[in-house]
């Protein structure tokens, strides 16, 4: 494979559920060694992207490629390079802890049983315990342990933090970060807990209904995207490409922008409104997400 070739490439994906448009001409790519976080409100199609990527959903039009191979014709070798975590940490729950390791180990030549049992040891559960009898959090740790043991070149994780307690979430984020950095792995993930993503992802892609709202390096969002609060006598502010989600909050106004305070002031005052006590705050990724997508 050409080292410059994107690990994930989607071109002009258009998909509908019935008559409801999910995306139109969605295009993006993920370069080798990057950790990309896919964010979006409920129902914006994050899991749908993952299903399309892995060939489990045929879009109305467009194509996705993993390691250069089209999604509906992935070779066994390419599937072996992709570690897939399904939403809800779905696994074969009729196995017990030891059986499922035995089952998967024969499929992957780089299988690292130590990585799996290392994570399992922290659970303090018997190797003979059936997965179906475990708590949601324990099941998720089994699923994640299996993925690390597989040692894939690309990890696709759908809502990886679901069901994990805060300590294990932190542990997993650190583990994943180290795993990706050391092995030059590529990671494509979604999560509802955005504060975990902040310390993990290199690039952030935010989905809105039907389109990509933003696809930027996380550092750029954290450095340049800010919340501006101000007082004004204006009744309303017309839409402006520089400003995001301008709204009155109590007696003051707030807006979000990548622009400098001077540019924001200029944009706000464009219709003659008086702008007083303009103040810029830096944001966490979660605040930035809300600033970009709105609260509702």
């Amino acid at each position: 494979m050409n080292p410059d070739m994107p690990v994930i490439e989607c071109r002009n994906i258009t998909h509908y559920y019935g008559n409801r448009l999910i995306y139109e001409n969605l295009s993006f790519e993920v370069q080798p060694g990057k950790i990309l976080g896919l964010l979006g409100k409920n129902g914006t199609g994050k899991t749908t992207v993952i299903n399309i990527l892995n060939g489990y959903l045929k879009p109305r039009s467009g194509v996705c490629r993993l390691f250069g191979e089209e999604m509906d014709r992935l070779s066994p070798a390419t599937k072996g390079r992709v570690g897939l975590l399904l939403e809800g940490h779905v696994q074969h729950a009729y196995f017990n802890v030891r059986q499922i390791e035995r089952y998967y180990s024969r499929f992957f030549p780089r299988w690292n049983a130590g990585a799996y049992f290392g994570l399992i040891d922290r659970l303090k559960i018997a190797p003979s315990q059936k997965i179906s009898t475990m708590s949601c959090g324990q099941r998720s740790q089994v699923a994640l342990g299996l993925l690390f043991a597989q040692d894939p070149d690309l990890l696709i994780l759908d809502d990886f933090s679901m069901g994990l307690d805060p300590g294990y979430r932190r542990l997993f984020v650190e583990y994943l970060r180290e795993y990706a950095a050391e092995g030059g792995k590529t990671v494509f993930l979604t999560s509802h807990i955005i504060q975990d993503m902040e310390r993990l992802i290199d690039d952030c892609m935010i989905l809105d209904y039907g389109r990509i709202l933003l696809h930027e390096p996380t550092s750029r969002i954290l450095d340049r995207f800010g919340r501006f609060t101000f007082a004004s006598n204006a009744e309303d502010f017309p839409a402006n490409p520089v400003l995001w989600n301008t709204a009155r909050v109590g007696s003051r106004w707030e807006t979000y922008s990548f622009a400098s305070p001077e540019e924001v002031r200029e944009a706000l005052a464009a219709n003659g409104a008086e702008i007083l006590a303009l103040n810029r705050e830096t944001l966490s990724l979660e605040d930035a997400f809300i600033g970009l997508t709105g609260k509702y």
Binding site: N54, Y56, P76, A77, K79, G80, V82, L84, L86, G88, V90, Q91, H92, A93, Y94, F107, F108
Partner: peptide
């Protein structure tokens, strides 16, 4: 039935075999 529960068949079809 276990393969269809939670769409586990996706995991099975994702194995590195045709």
């Amino acid at each position: 039935v276990p393969e269809l529960q939670s769409k586990r068949l996706k995991l099975t079809l994702h194995l590195p075999l045709k």
